[in-house]
């Protein structure tokens, strides 16, 4: 199959993300990368759990002083919903509906930006209200490394989506870019997987002690 060939919804193959050899390779390589990312985040989670509330003196804020449920709930809903909107985008990719796919990807990006805005507000708030910084304690270092690494993944995922949306705007769907969109959506889902454990292990377990 020629990657630049023009298609119609009728001739579009059933698994467009893996219809070319390049697509197959991208798919396999990207899942391998996600397996590695799992290990990377595990080491950050393990470090956080070991160093949680380890502060040099009693005047430092602990997890239960810092975290507030409403903000974390809003962040969780934004990221969870953005995962569903990228599923919608992939649904339209399968149906060869480029415009609708782009629209759902734009919605995904907007939700992701909302999440990022909340996280920036959160970090700034911790700094001003609690003097909780990266260098203030082992707890601070472990907390900002874990949540910050996740936040950096969100930034990268957003930049990736925006680059794909803009670069392919005039091109339409073909077998050259279908694997690119698919792999970016896998990355976005993985960011959500990590967040599920962050909101549970860091925030909710931090609140109950």
């Amino acid at each position: 199959m020629n990657a630049d060939e023009k298609y119609t919804p009728q001739t579009w193959p059933e698994g467009p993300e893996r219809a070319t050899l390049e697509g197959k390779n991208k798919f396999l390589g990207f899942w391998f990368f996600l397996g590695g990312e799992t290990v990377l985040f595990a080491s950050l989670f393990a470090t956080y759990i070991a160093l949680k509330d380890k502060v040099p003196s009693p005047d430092h804020a602990l997890a239960k002083d810092l975290f507030e449920l409403p903000l974390v709930f809003v962040m969780t809903m934004l990221l969870l919903t953005s995962s569903l909107t990228s599923v919608y985008a992939m649904y339209h990719l399968k149906n060869y509906d480029f415009k609708k796919m782009q629209l759902w990807l734009v919605i995904t990006v907007l939700l992701g930006l909302g999440f990022l805005g909340c996280e920036i507000y959160e970090f700034v708030h911790y700094y001003h209200a609690f003097d909780h910084t990266f260098t203030s304690s082992a707890f601070g270092s472990a907390f900002y490394t874990l949540t910050g690494f996740h936040g950096a993944h969100v930034i990268f995922g957003l930049a990736w989506f925006i680059a794909l949306i803009v670069r392919n705007a005039g091109r339409g769907l073909n077998l050259y870019n279908a694997p690119k969109f698919y792999v970016a959506s896998l990355y976005w889902h993985f960011i959500d997987v990590v967040w599920v454990f962050i909101f549970t292990v860091v925030y909710l377990m931090g609140m109950v002690g």
Binding site: G15, R18, F27, L28, W31, F32, L34, G35, G36, E37, T38, V39, F41, A42, S43, F45, A46, T47, I49, A50
Partner: peptide, 27 residues
């Protein structure tokens, strides 16, 4: 068609589990 991805992810999860187990029981 997701046999290899399954293996990659479950291997990653296995190492992840061991890492966290080690950190919460040794430290």
């Amino acid at each position: 068609g997701h046999e290899a991805p399954s293996m990659f992810m479950w291997s990653g999860i296995g190492v992840a589990f061991l890492t966290i187990l080690a950190f919460v029981t040794i430290i």
